[in-house]
Amino acid sequence: MGKVVLVTGAARQLGGRFVRRVQRDPEVERVIAVDAVTPPHRLGSAEFVRMDIRRSAIARVLAEHAVDTVVHLAVTGGGTGPGSTRSAVKETNVIGTMQLLGACQKSPTVRRIVVKSSTGVYGGTPRDPAVFTETTEPRSLPPGGFAKDAAEVEGYVRGFARRRPDVAVCVLRFANILGPRADSALAEYFSIPVLPTVLGYDPRLQFVHEDDVLDVLRLAAREPRPGTLNSGTFNIAGDGVLLLSQCARRLGRPTVPFLLPAVTWVGSALRAVGVTDFSPEQIRLLTHGRVVETSQMRQVLGFEPRYTTAGTFADFARSRGRGLLPPERVGRAVERVAGMLDVDVDAAEGAKR
C-alpha cells in the first residue's frame, strides 16, 4: 500500500501545484485535496473534498481515507474567496490548525505531518540579530498579522509533537516566496510601478523560489533518506541576500522614500484601493529586513535549493516585465543621489570644524 497524503489549502496556487506534483511520487497511492472553496485550477487525479478545516468534520476525512501523511498548506497571509476578511483568515490559520491537529492526534493512521510556516515568526525590530537560526528567540513576538498567526500555529504544533511522539512532525519556515506565479503580498508590492520605501533604511531580504518550495515540501512528506532527518523545524531560503534598493534597480522601478509614519499612511491608502496588502507586518520587513541561517536545511533535512535569492528574484523580475525605467538608468540615478548626499554630509562636517 502506498501513502495516502492529505493536503490542505488546495485552492491556492501553491497548494494546487503541490497536489499535482506529489501525485508523481511513486510512494504515493492517493492524494486528498481539502479546501473550503472549490479550486480554480486542475488537481489531476486527486480527490477533492470541500471542507472548512475549522470544523471537526476534518477528523472524519482522515478516518475515511486512512490518511497517513498530512501536508498543511492552509496557513496563509490571505484568503481565496471574496469574503476572506482578516479575521476569517486568522480563524482558518489558528482555529483550523487546532482542529486539524486535534483530528490527527486521535487518528491511528497519521504518521507524518508537514506544516508550512514563515520566517516572519522571528519578528522584525531594530534590535534583531544579523542572522536568525532555528533556535533564535525573537526579541519581541510579532504583534499581529500572518507572522503572529504562524507563531501561534507553531506553538500548537509543538504541543502536538509532545503528545504524539510517534508522529514525525516537520515545520518549514519559508523566507519570502517569489517566482513567476507568486501571489504573495511581497510579490504585489514589487509589482507597483513606483515602490514606497522607508527613508533611511535599505533592508536585507531573502527569497525562496516557488519551485524550491514544492521540492522541499515533497521531500519533507517522504520517508527520510539515509543520513537525513525530516522532522523538526527548518529555515528554508535561497543562498545570499539582496538589498531592497538592489531589488528596485533590477525591476527598473523607481523608489519614493517616506518617513516611517507616512509609509504607514501610504500602506493604508494602498490597502483601501486594493492595490496591495501593504500591512504593518510588511512595513516592518521593508524597514528592518530579515536574514536566516539555512545550514540545518542542508545538513539535517538534506535539501539544496536550485535557486539562490538573486536567482529567485531574477526569475520573478522576468515574469513582471520591464519597469518604468531601465534598471541601469535607475542604478545611475540612485548612485548620483547618493553621491550628492555624501557631498552634503562632508560640507556639513567641514562647516562644523
Rank of each mutant, 00 (worst) to 15 (best):
V94C: 07
S56V: 01
H72E: 09
E134C: 10
F48R: 14
E91R: 14
A59W: 12
R158K: 09
E137P: 13
A74H: 02
G102P: 00
V67L: 05
S45T: 15
R158N: 06
A175T: 08
H72A: 10
A175K: 01
D149E: 14
E47I: 14
A130M: 15
D149V: 12
D35G: 09
Y122R: 09
V75N: 10
T119E: 13
V61Y: 14
A151S: 05
V61P: 06
M98C: 09
A151D: 03
T133N: 13
M51L: 09
F48W: 12
G83Y: 11
R164Y: 08
L73I: 01
I95G: 15
D68K: 15
E134W: 11
G96S: 06
P40K: 08
R112S: 08
G77N: 14
S117Y: 00
R55C: 11
K90M: 15
A161Q: 03
Y156P: 02
L141N: 08
E152W: 12
E154C: 03
R158F: 05
V114N: 03
R139K: 15
P143H: 07
L101H: 06
Y156S: 07
R163P: 00
L141D: 12
Q99P: 14
R111F: 04
D35L: 15
R60D: 12
L43V: 09
G144S: 10
T76L: 10
L100R: 02
R50H: 01
P165N: 02
I95V: 15
V169C: 07
F174R: 01
V169T: 06
S84V: 10
F160M: 02
V110E: 00
T136M: 09
G77S: 15
C170H: 00
P126K: 11
C104P: 11
G81Q: 01
L43E: 04
L178R: 00
T119F: 08
R158T: 08
E47R: 13
G81V: 09
P142F: 13
L73E: 05
D52G: 06
V37H: 07
G144N: 04
G145E: 15
S118N: 02
L172W: 00
M51C: 08
R164C: 07
H72C: 09
